[in-house]
Measured scan of single mutants.
Amino acid sequence: RNRTTFSTFQLEELEKVFQKTHYPDVYAREQLALRTDLTEARVQVWFQNRRAKWRK
């Protein structure tokens, strides 16, 4: 699988949710996936990576 390149819009949407919660539930991830045209799995992995970055 190739690396996912996120658009500016997608990143803004993802970051917006991350500001509210670092652990969105499955429903929130599904909604975000639909809004950003990503799969729920991509959204989940983005949050994992974003939390790792945030901890540093």
Rank of each mutant, 00 (worst) to 15 (best):
Val26His: 08
Tyr23Cys: 04
Lys53Val: 12
Asn2Leu: 09
Arg29Gly: 02
Lys56Ile: 02
Arg1Tyr: 08
Ser7Tyr: 05
Leu11Asp: 07
Tyr27Cys: 11
Trp54Ser: 12
Thr5Asp: 15
Gln19Lys: 14
Arg50Met: 13
Arg42Asp: 10
Thr5Gly: 14
Thr5His: 10
Leu11His: 03
Gln31Asp: 06
Glu30Ile: 04
Arg50Val: 01
Pro24Arg: 01
Arg50His: 07
Gln10His: 06
Val17Gln: 12
Gln10Arg: 02
Phe6Pro: 09
Arg35Gly: 05
Arg55Leu: 11
Ala33Gly: 09
Asn49Val: 07
Ala41Asn: 11
Glu30Thr: 10
Val26Met: 14
Asn49Ala: 12
Gln31Phe: 03
Glu30Pro: 02
Arg51Ser: 02
Glu40Met: 08
Phe18Glu: 02
Gln19Asp: 07
Thr36Ala: 08
Thr4Trp: 07
Val45Gly: 12
Gln48Gly: 06
Tyr23Thr: 06
Arg35Ser: 06
Asn2Cys: 01
Arg29Thr: 13
Tyr27Pro: 06
Lys53Ile: 13
Trp46Asn: 07
Phe6Cys: 05
Arg1Gly: 15
Phe47Glu: 02
Lys56Val: 07
Leu34Ile: 11
Tyr27Leu: 12
Glu30Asn: 14
Ala41Lys: 08
Asn49Ile: 04
Gln31Asn: 05
His22Asn: 04
Arg29Trp: 01
Glu15Trp: 01
Glu40Cys: 07
Arg1Met: 11
Asp25Lys: 00
Lys20Arg: 10
Glu15Cys: 01
Thr39Gln: 05
Lys53Gly: 11
Leu14Val: 00
Leu11Arg: 08
Gln44Asn: 13
Ala33Lys: 04
Phe6Ala: 04
Lys20Asp: 06
Phe47Tyr: 03
Phe6Val: 09
Val43Trp: 01
Ala41Asp: 10
Tyr23Trp: 10
Arg50Phe: 02
Lys53His: 09
Lys16Asp: 04
Arg3Ala: 06
Thr36Trp: 03
Thr39Leu: 02
Val17Trp: 04
Leu34Gly: 12
Asp37His: 15
Phe6Ile: 13
Asn49Lys: 08
Thr36Gln: 00
Arg35Ile: 13
Glu12Gly: 08
Arg55Thr: 10
Glu12Trp: 05
Ala28Thr: 12
Ala28Gly: 05
His22Lys: 11
Arg50Leu: 01
Arg51Ile: 09
Gln44Ala: 13
Val17Phe: 04
Thr39Ile: 02
Lys56Gln: 09
Val45Phe: 13
Leu11Gly: 05
Thr21Phe: 04
Gln48Ala: 08
Pro24Ser: 01
Leu34Phe: 14
Phe6Leu: 15
Asp25Ile: 07
Gln10Cys: 01
Tyr23Ala: 04
Glu15Ser: 02
Asn49Tyr: 03
Thr4Gln: 14
Pro24Leu: 04
Glu15His: 03
Tyr23Ser: 05
Asn49Trp: 10
Leu32Lys: 04
Lys56Thr: 13
Gln10Phe: 00
Lys20Tyr: 06
Arg3Gln: 14
Arg29Lys: 03
Val17Gly: 10
Phe9Leu: 10
Tyr27Thr: 07
Lys53Arg: 08
Gln19Trp: 04
Leu11Pro: 00
Trp46Pro: 02
Lys20Ile: 13
Asn49Cys: 15
Lys16Pro: 00
Asn49Ser: 09
Ala28Phe: 09
Leu34Cys: 13
Thr8Ser: 11
Glu40His: 07
Leu14Asn: 02
Ala52Glu: 15
Glu30Val: 11
Thr8Val: 11
Glu13Asn: 04
Arg35Ala: 08
Arg55Phe: 07
Tyr27Gly: 10
Glu13Gly: 01
Thr36Asn: 03
Arg29Val: 14
Lys16Trp: 05
Asp25Cys: 05
Gln44Tyr: 10
Val45Ile: 09
Val26Cys: 11
Thr36Phe: 10
Glu15Ile: 01
Phe9Ala: 12
Lys56Leu: 14
Leu14Pro: 03
Glu12Lys: 05
Val45Thr: 13
Gln44Gly: 12
Ser7Thr: 15
Arg3Thr: 15
Phe47Asn: 03
Glu12His: 06
Pro24Ile: 09
Phe18Gly: 00
Lys53Glu: 15
Lys56Pro: 06
Lys56His: 15
Glu12Thr: 11
Gln48Tyr: 03
Arg42Met: 13
Glu13Thr: 05
Phe47Lys: 01
Leu34Pro: 00
Lys16Cys: 09
Phe6Thr: 05
Arg42Asn: 15
Lys16Phe: 05
Pro24Met: 01
Thr39Asp: 13
Phe6Gly: 01
Thr8Leu: 08
Asn2Arg: 06
Glu40Thr: 11
Arg1Cys: 14
Arg42Ile: 14
Pro24Glu: 05
Arg29Tyr: 05
Trp46Thr: 03
Val17Ala: 15
Gln44Pro: 02
Leu11Thr: 14
Arg50Lys: 06
Glu30Gln: 08
Arg3Pro: 15
Val26Phe: 07
Arg3Glu: 12
Ala52Tyr: 09
Phe47Arg: 00
Val26Gln: 13
Glu13Ile: 04
Arg29Asp: 01
Phe47Leu: 04
Leu14Gln: 00
Gln31Glu: 13
Thr21Ile: 04
Glu40Gly: 10
Leu11Ala: 11
Thr4Val: 11
Arg3Cys: 15
Trp54Met: 12
Lys56Asp: 12
Arg29Asn: 06
Arg55Ser: 08
Gln31Met: 10
Gln19Met: 06
Thr39Gly: 04
Lys20Leu: 14
Phe9Tyr: 12
Thr36His: 02
Val17Cys: 14
Thr8Ala: 12
Thr8Asp: 10
Leu34Tyr: 04
Thr5Ala: 12
Gln10Lys: 02
Arg1Thr: 13
Trp46Gln: 03
Lys56Ala: 07
Tyr23Ile: 01
Gln31Cys: 13
Asp25Glu: 05
Gln48Lys: 11
Lys56Gly: 15
Ser7Ala: 05
Ala41Gln: 10
Lys53Asn: 15
Arg55Lys: 09
Glu40Leu: 10
Thr39Cys: 05
Trp54Asn: 06
Phe9Ser: 12
Ser7Leu: 06
